[in-house]
Simulated assay, not measured.
Amino acid sequence: MKEYYSFNILPKEFYELPTLQLAKELLGCLLVKETSEGMTSGFIVETEAYMGPEDRAAHSYNNRRTNRTEIMYAEAGRVYTYVMHTHCLVNVVSGPPGKPEAILIRAVEPKDGTELMMDRRPKQGKELTNGPGKLTKAMGINKEDYGGCFFEPPLFIAEGKQPKEIVTGTRIGIGNSGEARDYPYRFWIKGNGFVSR
Rank of each mutant, 00 (worst) to 15 (best):
P132Y: 09
P132C: 11
G133M: 11
K134M: 07
L135F: 09
T136E: 06
T136F: 05
T136C: 14
A138T: 10
A138G: 11
M139A: 06
M139W: 01
M139H: 00
M139E: 03
G140L: 07
G140A: 06
G140Y: 07
I141R: 00
I141Y: 03
N142E: 07
K143H: 12
D145G: 05
Y146E: 12
Y146V: 00
Y146F: 14
Y146L: 09
G147A: 11
G147Y: 08
G147H: 10
G148E: 09
G148M: 09
G148K: 04
C149L: 13
C149Y: 14
C149V: 02
F151C: 07
F151M: 01
F151Q: 02
E152T: 13
P153S: 09
P154A: 11
P154L: 13
L155G: 00
L155V: 14
L155F: 06
L155W: 00
A158E: 00
A158S: 14
G160V: 05
K161S: 13
K161M: 12
Q162C: 10
Q162F: 14
P163E: 00
P163G: 06
K164F: 13
E165P: 04
E165R: 15
V167S: 06
V167A: 10
V167K: 12
T168P: 03
T168S: 14
G169W: 03
T170R: 15
T170A: 10
R171D: 00
R171Y: 02
I172F: 06
I172Q: 10
G173H: 12
G173F: 10
G173L: 06
G175A: 11
G175P: 00
N176A: 12
S177Y: 06
G178K: 05
G178L: 08
E179D: 13
E179M: 07
E179Y: 11
A180W: 08
R181I: 01
R181K: 15
R181H: 03
R181Y: 02
Y183W: 15
P184Q: 10
P184W: 04
Y185I: 04
Y185K: 06
Y185R: 07
Y185M: 08
R186H: 05
F187S: 03
F187T: 03
W188D: 00
I189Q: 00
I189P: 01
I189R: 01
K190Q: 14
K190A: 14
G191Q: 04
G191K: 05
G191L: 07
N192K: 08
G193Y: 01
G193W: 04
G193E: 15
S196G: 08
S196A: 09
R197F: 12
R197P: 15
R197H: 15
